[in-house]
Design a protein around this nucleic acid. Structure first.
Lengths: 352, 352
DNA sequence: TCAAGGTGGTAATACGAATTACCACCTTGA
DNA sequence: TCAAGGTGGTAATTCGTATTACCACCTTGA
């Protein structure tokens, strides 16, 4: 065995062949440009030495010259552990990876970012996101301050999920929630629903707000009406009787995870879904599984009508946009992708 | 917009502060060695400029000089797409990530490795695994040639899953299949089984071979006997009558995914599991889900007795070993982890 | 007055590959 | 005979950081 020997370098090859390091480099990169000539006899000698020694160019040195890494950072805002949110990221990551593979990039998971107050920080002492040529930001919520700083510094990044401008346009690939919600509202109205309610968290994050705004806009467009509620799940459940009394026949539920609980309570109250009242999920729940051992969703009796968030495609296109930014190719840096409707069993015509 | 501006370098910081690049480097690395002195006033100025510009040392340059990145490469052998194997890696990755987070390392997913003949290659023109301080190898199979080369070159790496030596010891964190299988065999024998069969693929990969060898060793140890079959799933199913006729009362199935199919066929033949014949899964099936939308395992009528592969822990310890290798701390570089037995419903005493 | 020692910093160089600028030599042709 | 052009190659420099060797200046103390 040769033991832990030093890496073979171009210099070594050069010594062996009695040529200069430059020559080795030229042979290696097969530079046939006019202006660069290597006698084929010399070339052979060099290639032979390369084959014998098993020389491989040190990618680090190579990158040093090229000033590009072909490394794309992936920053996940929420701490991945210990909650089950790991799988929240998975479809996005799969899309990102697919695209990275095609682009010949490696992905750097920025796991070293310290967790402060339950979330990771991009900017911190010794922040390492600049290790990468550019970054993809992943997470339900984003720190506006950090976003603004990234924009201000001109660091190339793309957010998965729409983000409002912060002192400059934020590149993103998001889901078209307003459009998706509008489609569902239109369907409901067409079925005869006239009084629809929105049940949300009251949160002002883009993903929540877009659904809510989409709902109110759609109401206005269709001529239907109805209240917009904001509160925790328990609170929303508690207000169901009030909605029924109000004559509401269709619920638009911001968080798909709340649907089952609402439906259960409605059944208790004697208003089964969808016979008495329709319930629409504004999205699809992220998959829940524990370390890859899937367990069935809590108690999914009902196949809720709603829409599918194109998570995989969002990840893929985010990479695409980032790549374009890095190559300085022109591209649409703010994209909203259509959500395919999911025709389940929870939206039906209102009782007559 | 500031436009796509150049990376900030130590030289830039130096210019801003009116000092030399050396000084910046010294401040950055907080060199308090005797023989190196920086006025605290100067230090402050430099630190301020660093904070303002958001400067981060270029890992590539750093790597050129030193030998550390705090980047750990993760190489997955099999192409991740388009099959559903993504989730095969997930529990391992989760363990790796957990450990990386604690160590303050970032993870580099080597997605750029080109796929040749259906699998990724570590060594290829422009291979990039040396961007990382060390690598974790993940995959059901591994290329022996590449493994040997890594060993010969003295590159720090750890395999998740046992690998046979290739011209030198291969560091790994694997599952103790022989031990796990032996426990199950012992259980079966204790219940009264005397003729056990092994149903495998005939593959010579370590993970398969270890199970098979564990089985034959356990047979010898317990005084039981029985055939070892090798073949595709369909072939194994076809040979079931032969096994029944042979007086076999317990099947040890190499690939857990085959169990249900075998049990179904046995039921058709009039030998229900486990009343007539026991069936043991040598492992637990990797979770299957499509882009995060879990669907129930094919037709999992039976809760098969078997064991759990400690995937998460394997990932975690692989990082641990790699870290030790990098720090040149002594550690056991070849580890087999115990698989907890899973007491299901498919192993029962043989019919009398 | 000047050697000794402390202080605060810089110039130079290494790391490995890529690239640019240029050199030394040879062959032509007029 | 010598300028023009072709041939085969090399020295020097670049990328960004870390490290080593050393320098210029100041303060002591005898």
């Amino acid at each position: 065995m040769t033991g832990p020997r030093r890496r073979v370098t171009q210099q070594d090859i050069a010594r062996i062949c009695g040529v200069s390091q430059t020559t080795v480099s030229l042979v290696l990169n097969n530079r046939l440009d006019a202006g660069v000539r290597i006698a084929s006899e010399t070339r052979e000698r060099v290639l032979e030495a390369i084959a014998e020694t098993g020389y491989v160019a040190d990618p680090v040195a190579r990158r040093m010259v090229a000033r590009r890494n072909r490394i794309i950072g992936v920053f996940t805002y929420e701490a991945v552990f210990p909650s089950g949110t790991r799988d929240f990221y998975q479809p996005f990551l799969a899309g990102i990876e697919d695209s990275a593979e095609q682009l010949g990039c490696d992905l750097l998971l920025l796991t070293s970012a310290p967790v402060v107050e339950g979330r990771r920080r991009i900017f911190h002492e010794g922040n390492r996101f600049r290790l990468a040529d550019g970054c993809i930001l992943l997470g339900r919520e984003t720190d506006r301050g950090e976003l603004a700083r990234l924009v201000a510094e001109g660091y190339p990044f793309v957010s998965v999920g729409r983000r409002a401008d912060t002192g400059g346009p934020v590149p993103y690939v998001g889901a078209d929630y307003p459009g998706a919600v509008a489609e569902l509202v239109a369907q409901a109205v067409e079925m005869g629903h006239r009084r629809l309610a929105y049940l949300g968290s009251g949160s002002h994050t883009e993903s929540r707000g877009d659904r809510r705004d989409g709902f109110t806009a759609a109401l206005a467009a269709t001529g239907a009406a109805g209240p917009v509620l904001a509160g925790e799940t328990a609170e929303l459940v508690a207000r169901l009787p009030e909605l029924v009394a109000d004559g509401v026949t269709a619920l638009f539920v911001e968080d798909p995870a709340d649907c089952q609980q609402l439906a259960d309570r409605l059944a208790e109250l004697g208003h089964p879904v969808p016979a008495a009242i329709s319930t629409v999920a504004l999205g699809d729940p992220p998959p829940d599984s524990v370390w890859g051992y899937p367990h069935p969703p809590a108690t999914a009796d009902i196949d809720f009508t709603g829409f599918r968030i194109p998570r995989w495609e969002m990840g893929r296109q985010a990479m695409e946009v980032l790549s374009a930014l890095l190559e300085e190719k022109s591209t649409e840096p703010q994209r909203l992708l259509r959500c395919a409707g999911h025709r389940g069993a929870s939206l039906a015509p209102p009782p007559r």
